[in-house]
Simulated scan of single mutants.
Amino acid sequence: MTFSLVARCAETGMFGMAISSSSPAVAARCAFARAGVGAVSSQNITDPTLGPLALDLMESGASASEAIAEVQARGKFIEYRQVLAVDAQGETAIHSGPNSLGIWTQAQGRDVASGGNLLANDGICQAIVTGFETATGHLGDRLIAAMRAGLAAGGEAGPIHSAGLLMVDKHSWPVAELRCDWTEDCPIEAIATAWEVYQPQLEAYVQRALDPREAPSYGVPGDE
């Protein structure tokens, strides 16, 4: 019911992930990232505890592959889960349990990993990885390009209804957390539109958190 990617920007060290599903509010259950540590997707009959577990392990010094191996050892009903991870060195690792749903597959490269289940075909995840690797620009642009590539390659076996994009940078909070929790239209395009609006304002929101005295004006009625 899901396809996703986790990724690291080799230039900036930012981490991000993007995900889409036929289920509602997929990002609320599946999307995890921590600044300076990595990004994780926990999906397919989802156990949301596996995302923080993998991030805790990587924050303690484990590589992505070591973290995923420990998730496999500790996770309950792990044969039903898919878990993707990327770490601070750009290493990636994936667990896809044999009870993953429908056509399921995975693909990975340096700084990017993709996994999916109930897919239209077994080429979706490689299309997502290639889409990320060939895209340029901000990490958010590359995540959107990758998800569009997966959708163009066939996407899920049925219609998708929710999507999310999550990114972290140098601070403890996400610099972007964009979600479309349900739509009858394309949720990936809904997220892409939200990113187009948000990207030019991203740094201003970070500055407002750090020191509002140096921040741009708020641009709302009554603001001078």
Score class of each variant (00 low, 15 high):
residue 1 M to H: 13
residue 2 T to Y: 01
residue 4 S to R: 02
residue 5 L to E: 07
residue 7 A to S: 11
residue 8 R to K: 10
residue 10 A to N: 07
residue 12 T to S: 15
residue 13 G to R: 04
residue 13 G to Q: 09
residue 16 G to A: 06
residue 19 I to A: 09
residue 19 I to P: 07
residue 23 S to M: 14
residue 28 A to F: 04
residue 30 C to E: 07
residue 30 C to N: 07
residue 30 C to Q: 11
residue 32 F to A: 05
residue 33 A to F: 00
residue 34 R to W: 09
residue 35 A to Y: 10
residue 36 G to W: 05
residue 37 V to D: 04
residue 38 G to W: 04
residue 39 A to E: 09
residue 40 V to T: 11
residue 42 S to I: 01
residue 45 I to Q: 14
residue 47 D to V: 06
residue 48 P to F: 06
residue 50 L to M: 13
residue 52 P to C: 10
residue 56 D to R: 12
residue 57 L to R: 10
residue 57 L to I: 03
residue 63 S to V: 06
residue 64 A to P: 11
residue 66 E to L: 11
residue 66 E to G: 15
residue 66 E to C: 05
residue 67 A to D: 04
residue 70 E to G: 00
residue 70 E to R: 11
residue 71 V to E: 04
residue 72 Q to S: 07
residue 73 A to K: 04
residue 75 G to I: 01
residue 79 E to I: 08
residue 80 Y to C: 12
residue 83 V to K: 00
residue 83 V to L: 02
residue 84 L to F: 10
residue 86 V to N: 05
residue 87 D to F: 07
residue 90 G to H: 08
residue 91 E to K: 13
residue 91 E to M: 11
residue 92 T to W: 04
residue 96 S to Y: 01
residue 99 N to K: 14
residue 100 S to V: 02
residue 102 G to H: 07
residue 105 T to Q: 13
residue 105 T to D: 13
residue 105 T to L: 00
residue 106 Q to E: 15
residue 107 A to E: 08
residue 112 V to F: 13
residue 114 S to L: 04
residue 114 S to H: 02
residue 115 G to H: 06
residue 117 N to T: 01
residue 119 L to Y: 05
residue 120 A to L: 12
residue 125 C to R: 00
residue 126 Q to P: 01
residue 128 I to P: 00
residue 128 I to F: 08
residue 130 T to L: 14
residue 130 T to M: 14
residue 131 G to C: 11
residue 132 F to N: 09
residue 134 T to G: 07
residue 137 G to H: 06
residue 138 H to W: 10
residue 138 H to F: 13
residue 141 D to W: 03
residue 142 R to A: 06
residue 148 R to E: 15
residue 151 L to Q: 15
residue 151 L to V: 02
residue 155 G to L: 11
residue 156 E to W: 00
residue 157 A to Q: 14
residue 157 A to K: 15
residue 158 G to Q: 15
residue 160 I to D: 11
residue 161 H to L: 07
residue 162 S to Y: 02
residue 163 A to D: 07
residue 163 A to Y: 03
residue 165 L to T: 09
residue 167 M to E: 11
residue 168 V to T: 13
residue 168 V to W: 09
residue 169 D to T: 06
residue 171 H to Y: 15
residue 172 S to C: 07
residue 172 S to Y: 14
residue 173 W to C: 02
residue 173 W to D: 07
residue 177 E to D: 15
residue 181 D to Q: 05
residue 182 W to P: 04
residue 182 W to H: 13
residue 184 E to T: 12
residue 187 P to L: 03
residue 187 P to K: 08
residue 187 P to G: 11
residue 187 P to E: 04
residue 190 A to G: 15
residue 191 I to W: 06
residue 193 T to D: 10
residue 194 A to L: 15
residue 196 E to M: 10
residue 198 Y to S: 08
residue 204 A to I: 00
residue 207 Q to N: 00
residue 218 Y to H: 12
residue 220 V to C: 08
residue 221 P to N: 03
residue 221 P to L: 09
residue 221 P to D: 10
residue 223 D to N: 12
